[in-house]
Amino acid sequence: MVWLAVGLVLLASIILAVSKITALGRPNPVKDDEDPANMLEGVPTLFIPGYFGNRFSFGRLLNRMTKRYGAHKSMVVKVDRHGNIHVSGTLSKSKALIQILFAKKASRPQEQAVWLSQILDLLQTRYGIRKVNLVGYSMGCITIFWFLTHQSQSGLVAVKHVVAIAGPFNDSEIARSTNEVDAYPLSPKGPVKRMPIYRALAKRIFEIPKDIKVLNIAGRISNLQQDDGEVSVNSAFSLRYLLREPVAQYHELVIRGKRASHRLLHENAIVDASIAKFIWNL
């Protein structure tokens, strides 16, 4: 009987753990949803993961935003391997959070930008959405800015706020780790050495709307290590030189310490609070 009891407890623990993991990729039921008094709260925010991203990429962050800042993870949008879009949940009226998941894990920013454009078209057609905020992590930041420079002009949805977390804007390889972290020095005119992705964005940066607001977050593990273990502060803040003219507001934030590592930046309470303050003015 003792072994049976132990087995049942273990089974229950496994079921609970699997349920929690599964829930990271599902919308949460909307509770206490009201029309927002603050117009900022009525604009949904989309979260785009990095290379090989999954439900863990933003799942826990979205749950924390729900608990601490009254947001609603009310919708999950999945893009299957054939580019078909599947929506679960429905949009809350205030502080709606939308998790984006790509089944094709190795897809590149150029392909993801097309899907992002299609997602926004769907949100506009089906839900009447006219404005959104975008939050990207790692390669997801490149997806966002590739969309802004190559896809957004043909759409009817305006992007109001962008949060870039550990964006490899001047990395030689934006989807894989290199032996050394790219950290090309920054001059008054920009990076002294400009990688292909930087040059590609620079060619079409004039397409970005001038009223957009950008928060650029980078990690720095220590004074001796000026990067997050994957992306350097210099690479992330190369975006500064691309956006010097086109945008209304541009802000930078450096997260420091062990919890500023690349894989922990989206599990950092300072990042959570910074997103809430920047997007909803909390």
Rank of each mutant, 00 (worst) to 15 (best):
K210D: 15
N234E: 12
L215I: 04
V233H: 01
V247S: 09
A183S: 15
L224Y: 09
T178S: 12
Q225R: 01
Y198E: 09
K203C: 12
L186S: 10
A183H: 14
A218E: 01
I221A: 07
E207G: 10
S232M: 09
D182W: 08
Y198N: 09
K213R: 12
P191H: 08
P188W: 15
V247M: 04
S177N: 06
N216G: 11
P185S: 03
R244I: 12
I205P: 02
D182A: 11
K189G: 01
I212G: 00
S222C: 05
S238G: 11
L224A: 12
V192L: 06
G190K: 05
G219K: 01
D182E: 03
K189L: 10
S238T: 11
K203V: 15
E180N: 11
S238L: 06
V233R: 00
P188F: 15
S222H: 08
N234H: 11
F237S: 07
I212M: 06
V247N: 04
S238K: 10
R194N: 07
Y198F: 15
R220I: 00
S238I: 11
E180F: 09
I212E: 00
S177T: 04
K210G: 05
P209C: 08
L224F: 14
A248C: 03
L243E: 12
A183D: 15
Y241N: 02
M195N: 06
R220K: 11
V181H: 00
R244N: 10
S232D: 04
E245Y: 10
A202W: 02
L201I: 13
A202I: 01
V192N: 03
L224W: 10
K210I: 09
A183R: 12
L243Q: 12
R199K: 09
R244D: 10
N179G: 14
S238F: 09
I205W: 07
N223R: 04
I197G: 00
L224R: 03
Q226T: 14
A236Q: 03
D182N: 14
A218W: 01
S235W: 06
N223E: 14
G219I: 13
S235T: 12
I197M: 10
V247Q: 07
N234Q: 15
Y198Q: 11
K203F: 15
P209N: 06
